[in-house]
Simulated scan of single mutants.
Amino acid sequence: MDGRESKVSLGTYYIYVTVASIIVFLFSVMLAPLVPLDEPKVYPYDGGYYDLGIPVGFSFSAFISLMVFLVSAILFWGAENVFYNVIVDASGISFVILNYINYYLIWYVWKPTITLIPFFMEIKYDGATSMQLDLGQIVLILLLYRFYRLYKKSRVPRSLPGPDTHIRGNEGS
């Protein structure tokens, strides 16, 4: 840790991360209308009409946050600079939130059965079952690992009692 990072407390750091993750979240959601839709925005199925713009837009937003996380993690993972670490953590938190909003919207629009399995999501819909790798869980584990390492670094080590720290009592009497 350099002098700048050691002056930022853990609480202050996570306030920075929270604010930055809100900014990354809003930036990613603002890019949702730019999603390239190959299918029609509204399509009929089983007597109902489904608007694909919102779920596909959130999926695109999650992809943008994931790309920011991956690039920043590759470039700045071991950096000592607080700003770089905030970018990595904020983009990861933003991706995790957008990822699970996306799964909620998939459930809300199509009403499939979604089962959370370690590292996967099982989605059953209309007789078909698919297993999807849940990158949200993987990024969440990486973020928890980063938090644990940062927490351990921020703790002040206690000195053990020994010959150097022993208080001498009545030696002169």
Rank of each mutant, 00 (worst) to 15 (best):
F120P: 00
P163F: 04
I106T: 13
Y84M: 12
V68P: 11
I141C: 06
Y49F: 13
Q137G: 05
Y49T: 03
P44H: 07
G78Y: 13
N99V: 02
S130C: 01
G48V: 07
S130Y: 09
R4L: 08
F69W: 15
F69R: 06
E80Q: 11
I167H: 11
M121Q: 12
V24L: 04
N102L: 07
V82G: 00
I123S: 03
D46R: 15
L143Q: 09
G3N: 14
T165S: 13
V19T: 08
V109F: 09
L133C: 01
K7A: 15
S65C: 12
P161G: 07
S72V: 05
F147S: 04
R4N: 13
V19L: 14
S6E: 14
L160W: 04
W77L: 13
G48P: 00
D38P: 00
T165Q: 04
S65G: 01
R155Y: 02
P33Q: 05
T12V: 10
A20T: 01
S65F: 03
G53M: 03
L160T: 08
P36M: 09
S59Y: 09
G53D: 09
D2Y: 10
A62Y: 07
K7N: 09
A128Q: 07
N99I: 05
M131A: 07
Y45S: 12
L10Q: 06
V86F: 04
K153V: 01
G92Y: 02
Y145F: 14
L10E: 06
E171Q: 10
S130T: 11
I74G: 11
G47V: 07
V42S: 11
